[in-house]
Amino acid sequence: PEAADLRALARHLYEAYLKYFPLTKAKARAILSGKTGDSAPFVIHDMKSLMEGEQFINCRQMPIQEHQQQTSALTAAHGVELRFFHSCQSRSAEAVREVTEFAKSIPGFVDLDLNDQVTLLKYGVIEVLIIMMAPLMNKDGTLISYGQIFMTREFLKSLRKPFCQMMEPKFEFSVKFNTLELDDSDMALFLAVIILSGDRPGLLNVKPIEQLQETVLHSLELQLKLNHPDSLQLFAKLLQKMTDLRQIVTDHVHLIQLLKKTEVDMCLHPLLQEIMKDLY
């Protein structure tokens, strides 16, 4: 019966994952390997294709008029990077909302102290977003804009400093992470484990969080044994990734803080500002 409960938890989290995250790993890998028939993504590989591809970016989040106003406000010198960065922020804010809904679906999460729920999200959400980027990436580039666009790694590296430094660490991490070959049902459990980290600074009541995490960890361990019977030590390897992840988030937040100081025209999305303030 205990194993049955752990399997039910895995199924529940997988269903929530499918419900709240629009681009699954299965779909992303199909797009990346050209198995989606005639709907190949638009490729951004230089400034010209970026301009052409911009109509795809943000089309879901922003009313056209507002987008045009913001676009025209940012057409000064160096505007391209800032404009693209702005689009990334809108998508990230939307993704934070998706992760929040997923977190709320973890059994027991909404019964935690509300301040602790906030702390878990504040510290966990960027880690979750970086893990969720991995399925969208390969060594040559990344899918963006819900899989409608493929942006090359070389193009991202060609942007001016410090924008060119933002994605390279995520590519390095993702290429290694993808060798673990997790599927969407494994990912759902791993994301829940990350969210339920009992060592986040400022938590008021650690014990119930650790208890919830322990159950999800057991479910993840069983899931990996059943789903990847030939992959030795996969559970241990996956848990080790959590250490690398914290370093990537720390570096990412420092880079954003640097941008805030150096880029006169940069405005940070209020939700992202809230998350990053006093984070690391």
Binding site: L114, P270, L271, I275
Partner: peptide, 20 residues
């Protein structure tokens, strides 16, 4: 609470998403 106003809203608002 004020420091994390939007996160609070996202957590408590179960149906309509906060205007992002």
């Amino acid at each position: 609470k004020e420091k994390h106003k939007i996160l609070h809203q996202l957590l408590q608002n179960s149906t309509s998403p906060v205007d992002l």
